[in-house]
């Protein structure tokens, strides 16, 4: 298999190569039995490993260089893709892509982060870190979609919005603020899926929707594990990053438990990159189902449910109010 292994997958990798050797040797007397035994062992090892990943291991899976990104899903899921470039003000952000597409016969607008696979593409895309013009573009295309009753699909996959001088000069905070504000009332169905990294404000900037779900190994967090480790323990190293990842409760399971996401979309055994085709088909099914459901709501109900969804978020106590001392 050409796909590279992560350090914590060592046992699985070893067993895979043993299996490959045996299979290449052609089995023969007893060999066939041995191959079957190892296959069984491998399956059970994988099932066990991937269903109980440490949050930091999940982070590594969702950052795997071969993990499918927005444009891969465009190929895997949609019948057509008409990319729309530019924010009509400053530029065309390669880290945030927008375009019309068809899901079966259904017209949709895709908005998604793109990190890039090759070094050249990654550099062009700033590793999936969008600039203000990206958020301006995304919002403009969403409004266009709403005008013509086209639902929006947001695929979130960013380590965070780009932290740089130009980004600040051009209003990184302002454009994310505007995007969140307007997405709360864009009158068309919006389905958001965190397909990889859900990095803070950069993720939320395209993350306000009627449905918000995550792929099984994705994370979604207020701060990256590196950033959190740096603040809490001064250094982000191999000891502190896993601790931060666990402390932040940022896995799909955590977010489901905290009431932040609607669904966990299962990944193929070992992660989306092990079988992009299967991942694509699961995601496609998810999108079909939810777009159909949302399509049945009136605009008014749609926006009201969207409001209530976010209105209910947060955990706090309310004690008997003390009277106002003025």
């Amino acid at each position: 298999m050409a796909i590279s292994w992560l350090p914590f997958e060592k046992d699985i990798q070893d067993l895979e190569s043993t299996l490959e050797r045996l299979e290449a040797a052609g089995g023969g007397e007893g060999g066939a039995e041995e191959i079957r035994r190892i296959r069984r062992e491998l399956t059970s090892l994988k099932r066990h490993k991937y269903s109980s990943l440490h949050p930091w291991e999940a982070v590594q899976i969702c950052r795997h260089p071969d993990r499918p990104q927005t444009l891969d899903y465009v190929d895997l899921i949609f019948n057509e893709y008409v990319e729309l470039h530019g924010d009509r003000a400053f530029g065309n952000d390669r880290a945030l892509r927008t375009g019309f597409a068809r899901l079966d016969d259904q017209k949709v607008l895709i908005v998604g982060h793109q990190k890039g696979h090759t070094l050249k593409e990654r550099t062009e895309c700033f590793y999936g870190c969008a600039h203000p013009e990206g958020y301006r573009k995304a919002l403009a295309k969403m409004k266009l979609a709403a005008k013509f009753n086209v639902p929006v699909i947001c695929l979130i996959d960013t380590p965070g919005a780009y932290p740089g001088i130009g980004a600040e000069e051009r209003g990184q905070a302002q454009l994310i603020a505007t995007s969140i504000f307007e997405m709360a009332r864009v009158p068309t169905p919006i389905v958001c899926v965190v397909i990889g990294e859900g990095g803070s404000g950069g993720a939320l900037g395209i993350g306000v929707g009627d449905r918000v779900s995550m792929l099984e190994h994705a994370y979604y967090s207020v701060i990256s594990p590196e950033g959190c480790a740096g603040i809490l323990w001064k250094v982000a190293d191999e000891q502190t990053k896993p601790r931060a990842a666990a402390s932040l409760r940022m896995t799909a399971k955590d977010l489901k438990r905290l009431g932040v996401i609607d669904e966990i979309i299962p990944e193929p055994l070992g992660g989306a990159h092990r079988d992009p085709r299967e991942m694509g088909s699961t995601l496609k099914q998810y999108l079909r189902t939810h777009l159909r459901e949302l399509g049945m709501l009136s605009k008014e109900d749609l926006l009201d449910h969207r409001f209530q969804k976010f209105r209910g978020m947060g955990v706090f106590d309310e004690v008997a109010a003390t009277t106002n001392a003025d």
């Binding site: 709360a184 939320l204 967090s221 207020v222 905290l258 976010f310 209105r311 978020m313 947060g314």
Partner: peptide, 17 residues
């Protein structure tokens, strides 16, 4: 954590209304 991030959306939604 994530609940704080979601407050951004919550307040924004009320401001949009």
């Amino acid at each position: 954590g994530i609940l704080s991030l979601m407050q951004m959306a919550k307040v924004s939604a009320a401001l949009a209304r």
